[in-house]
Design a protein around this nucleic acid. Structure first.
Lengths: 203, 203, 203, 203
DNA sequence: GATGAATGAGCCTTCATTCAT
DNA sequence: GATGAATGAAGGCTCATTCAT
């Protein structure tokens, strides 16, 4: 009884594609405003401006709508990071760019993203879901220029994500401040043994 | 429709206290085994071995049960950390002890804890909820022995928690390994500029 | 996903038993008046004067309500026939009594009974369901006093039932007439080679 | 809300006729494989290889599709029996031929036929529907060569049909056996007082 | 105090039918 | 004529909550 992955019919006609986008956008808004318990198909249909029946033409059941949303967000974010890694920027500047990408991914429509990803995790293997981040992890090297161990790569990525996630969830006023960004970059670079800007004005 | 906080009657008679504990224990087990969607009052009453009516003698509504569970877990954990801080151990050894306390809090009955805390966050101000950790944060000092800035303390605590949380959620096989614990300690100490065990092959 | 047989909880308390009877009686009335397509849980709850929720305390799903109804009718009818067979009456008089029992079973609230039994047949092995009639069949003997062959017993019982069923379904005006009853008795007895009343007034 | 009888446009062009046949054939297959509850217009359109819209060009609503199917089956069967009656064969041989025609009508695609006919009966006057059988009934005579009374004719035809119907529904292994056919012929002839093959071991 | 039968709002989902293309 | 996306009434079912016993 596993719900079909994502959609019933892969829509290629422009009208269908538009309808699908409308549904996913409405889903993100709704999830954002009411959270998971209030997220129901009737409310979604109304906000999307389509009928309940249309919803079910595009998705086999409710859960698959949330999953589709999560996968969409995940793909968009991974694309952004890959673009940075493929660019010319290196070293501290590159690290800043990545942190900034993460920060903005987390701060726009955050609650919806978090819930969707949580739901995605509830029904899929998390290891598989993190697979998309492997290119990011392998782009990092330690102070001697060697690739990171499995555990080190894990701690690095999850620590930075964790701090950002908490800042969003706790509504930290410094979320988009330069200081917070600097601290995150420092966290990562210090952990790996890279030089970073002097701590405070000391030393 | 805001639910009264926690309980209808604060139970002081021993029997009531026992019933309340049974309910909370059953709630933790149920949340653990079926997750939030399957967590319903009828199932809870049955697992706790009490009637639905009794449930409602102790809690005004469903959400307050989950909240009570979260608060209970939170209090227990905070007590553990405060005990460490009140002890004699200092420096690297104290940091290891705290990390270990976190790790075990996260690895026992994790899913229930996460869901309960998530639910707690959904209905309460996260800043208020994190207030209990302030003693922990003020116990840390930077390499020059000065207290941490607000942002630094935040990044430190949430980064470590984030890495542990992810390890649990992703079912990382190294969750309780020495290597993972070492990496977390290193993460925190490197961030603060404290000396730690040598990285990689360096002296 | 097979529905549990009959009820969720076997109710033994008098109140529960009464509620269950009310539901089954309402189900029979509703099935009678609107037929299977119009038979829905909301309408049933309303006619029974109970809530939808109560319905689902007694039956796991809609189909099991119809099945319970069918089994109840089946049991009642079988009991009636067994009583006749256990009695003193023999020969032609006994055959008449059985035919009459069938006729009345068919003519009181017939449509509901037919639909319920049809639904029962749709979800259960018909051979199993007919098992209750075996005592009836073995009570019949051919003109030489020998028990009937399997096929003969089958043809006899189903032929008589078929004629009665059709009379009900077609709304035959002679359904409860003496002539019809006589013809049915004659059908069975002639088939088995027993003497019966002279055909018409002719030799 | 009574559905217009049968079709919107009586199709006389060959293409329309072909489409209609495709739809009815698909309807029979679908009814056979999933039963009445699973029989829905979307599934029918897909199996027939036409669009939903096309379905509604040929039939005003769903019920009329099933009715058309039933009428088609009914007409085909009546034609077969009329052909036998119009033939040369008489007496026992003719009776066998008719029984055999019934048996095969019942055993080929039986479930679909039964459901369709049931649905037909639900919306039409059964007396009207049985009108087609009157020629069959009037072809039978009693042992004195006189036509049957109304009740006798009814009992005869419905008894034989009832036994066959039950054999199909109960999946009797003897459905197409010589013994079953013999018993049915004997049932009818004994009822009418005609001589038949010896019963049991008698001469 | 405890019980659990009863309630019913509200949710997910199906599917007959319409109509713009 | 044909298509199939869209519609939405309708129905099955769950579960938080109440209250008579």
């Amino acid at each position: 009884m596993k719900s079909a992955e994502k959609t019933r019919k892969t829509p290629t006609q422009p009208r269908s594609r538009a309808t699908l986008d409308v549904i996913l956008e409405a889903a993100a808004q709704l999830l954002e405003s009411v959270g998971e318990p209030g997220f129901n198909t009737n409310a979604l249909a109304e906000r999307a401006g389509v009928s309940i029946g249309t919803l079910y033409r595009y998705f086999p059941d409710k859960r698959s709508i949330i999953n589709a949303l999560a996968l969409q967000e995940k793909a968009a974010f991974e694309a952004r990071v890959v673009a940075i890694l493929a660019g010319e920027t290196q070293g501290l500047a590159r690290d800043r760019a990545i942190i900034r990408a993460f920060l903005h991914a987390f701060s726009d429509r955050t609650e919806a993203r978090r819930l969707a990803v949580t739901a995605l995790y509830a029904t899929h293997d998390p290891r598989e879901l993190m697979a998309g981040f492997e290119p990011v992890q392998s782009a990092f090297l330690d102070a001697e220029g060697r690739p990171l161990s499995r555990v080190t790569a894990f701690v690095l990525s999850r620590a930075v994500q964790g701090a950002m996630r908490a800042a969003v969830l706790e509504g930290a006023d410094f979320l988009l401040s330069q200081e917070f960004e600097d601290e995150l970059v420092h966290l990562g670079r210090a952990y790996l043994g890279h030089p970073t800007r002097p701590r405070g004005g000391r030393a």
